[in-house]
Design a protein around this nucleic acid. Sequence first.
DNA 1: CAAATTTTGATTTACGTACCTCAGATTTTC
DNA 2: GAAAATCTGAGGTACGTAAATCAAAATTTG
Lengths: 346, 346
Amino acid sequence: MKPTVHDIAKIAGVSLATVDRVLNGRPGVRSVTRGRVEQAITSLGYVRDLAAANLAKSRTYSFVFILPANDNSFMIGLHEEVRGAVARSSSERTDIRIVDVPPFDAGALVVALETVLAEKPAGVAFVAIDAPEIRAAAERLRQAGIPMVTLVSDLPDSSRDHYAGIDNIAAGRTAGSLMGRFLSGPFLAERGATVAVLAGSMLVRDHRERLEGFSTVIDQAYPNVHILPVLEGRDDPALTETMIADALRRNADIAGIYSLGAGNRGLIRALHKVRVARRPLVIAHELTASTRAALADGVIDAVLNQDAGHEVRSAIRVLKAKADGLPVLAAQERIRIDIFLKDNLP
Amino acid sequence: MKPTVHDIAKIAGVSLATVDRVLNGRPGVRSVTRGRVEQAITSLGYVRDLAAANLAKSRTYSFVFILPANDNSFMIGLHEEVRGAVARSSSERTDIRIVDVPPFDAGALVVALETVLAEKPAGVAFVAIDAPEIRAAAERLRQAGIPMVTLVSDLPDSSRDHYAGIDNIAAGRTAGSLMGRFLSGPFLAERGATVAVLAGSMLVRDHRERLEGFSTVIDQAYPNVHILPVLEGRDDPALTETMIADALRRNADIAGIYSLGAGNRGLIRALHKVRVARRPLVIAHELTASTRAALADGVIDAVLNQDAGHEVRSAIRVLKAKADGLPVLAAQERIRIDIFLKDNLP
DNA sequence: CAAATTTTGATTTACGTACCTCAGATTTTC
DNA sequence: GAAAATCTGAGGTACGTAAATCAAAATTTG
């Protein structure tokens, strides 16, 4: 039988009230007595029954998710997953609130974090922007003892407790490796190949990191692949379409395209206008309705994906654990880079 | 505030005892009264608080995991993950027992299932063998109302409630697609290429399915790739090593190897003895210490993996849900095929 | 040494559900 | 219409923990 507080009281020769005071760090216990109780706790190997404790406290975990009001499919999907978690709230003892902020706006994110700080929730998840003022705001939240998880985009060297997202450098490396291997042959041969990179904005950390990983692998392992200057499409379909169309017109020898940002609809539209035989090899990020269709059609060759549902559920698990002072299962919380070819689409 | 049984009693104008009788399907309630109570339940949107209920019942979920006592790295890792779950038992209200059975032995598995049936656990997970007598045993478990999950290897068209493992046909297709794309170029050109397939045993369903997926893609999309007759290494390192060495000697033009079974140590040893310039392209399954090292060394080019930890945790979540008659989150429980290149090793 | 303060014990209620007993009411059966 | 069977209500205890109250004991302070 699992030991209970009653067993501790009996062994330590104190009352339930004293055990409770020790367990919950309440004042009014002499240090000798506290020692006896702690001794009993360790000797019995007592672990508090979280379910019973939460029941007694009639506790609900109040979490806040701060999400950019982006209109690309990935962010919309992320929103949906959070709403799904809200729907499951009652059976998971959580009370999740969504706060929308304008995208790529550090000032707005700071304001949101400050507002959240004021209401002292049990935890906060947010899509970080890599800026010093965000780090400062995060530090204030940490001082207030509010667990924090960054979602999708990280804030390294900050006070966040955890990052629920993929390793973007590794994602870029993977894309580079696939690009190099897929190109070796039909295009590359001895004469080399040209590759275009399409990003949303180089101001965003994830995009910079993906590019970094991609370039590293290409430079080291595929020296005769030449990377063109990065195209920044601001994740905007219309802009992206014209940029890609232009690029393909100017550089007739583009053999591959790595789209490391969101908003691939424009890219796909531009690709559909290219003669099949002359289509470049394309690697993109995020499995959405449009990239999935393009993958099935053969317009896109590979898609690297992060599962928004997993990220949201992981963030919630981690926030709960942090709120309870419990350890997290690192292996369970590692968000993986999914590689989809048209043959392993779920 | 979430409605409780007390609210139901008040609304329906009955006592707590009657509500309890309705909720738990106990006898002794006239159908008119039962109707009133059920009406109140739906109108309030009542959902039973599982944590409180389990506390009151002082319930623990007793699960049995039946695992083949295989000595390959993957199965050893699977064992370890289940042991990890056993270690977490106390805080998860589970009581997990591991039953070892000899591998590839349908008779022994039937005996194990029958023994398990006798002790009526709250759920069973097992690595299935695709045989009619196993289906019959599974049907008996279902009749007894014991939730069942197949692990790693499925038993389609049976009474199992869920399969916690990857889609092996899709895995084979993915391997075929990678093989075809990677080969197109340095080897393939116009003259075609020869590929060897190494399996454990064609009697095992997963291996058959992987081969099926692989062959389909190669035949359809890469007609000038020629697949040699399957080598069955029985997942035995020594045997595998000699088989691969022999095959490479006899067929000097082997451009690729697809190892779809476990026990890759022998394969790797054989590959290390081949001159670097003449090494074939290799795609293997399961990320273990040896395949990881081989991937880093460039001896293996890609590894398809299923995460044993995820499979075990998923099986437990599903068994719990089935035991409670709750729905499962399909998206959360889908086990993904991880593709590892040397650039995205975790 | 008395008064004030701190520490401790004993007891109680609560969380939401399960499950038990017993008495009283209602319905069914003969 | 009485006896038997069936339903229903009221009340309690339990699960393991939290948290509150109040009194008693021990300690410190003036």
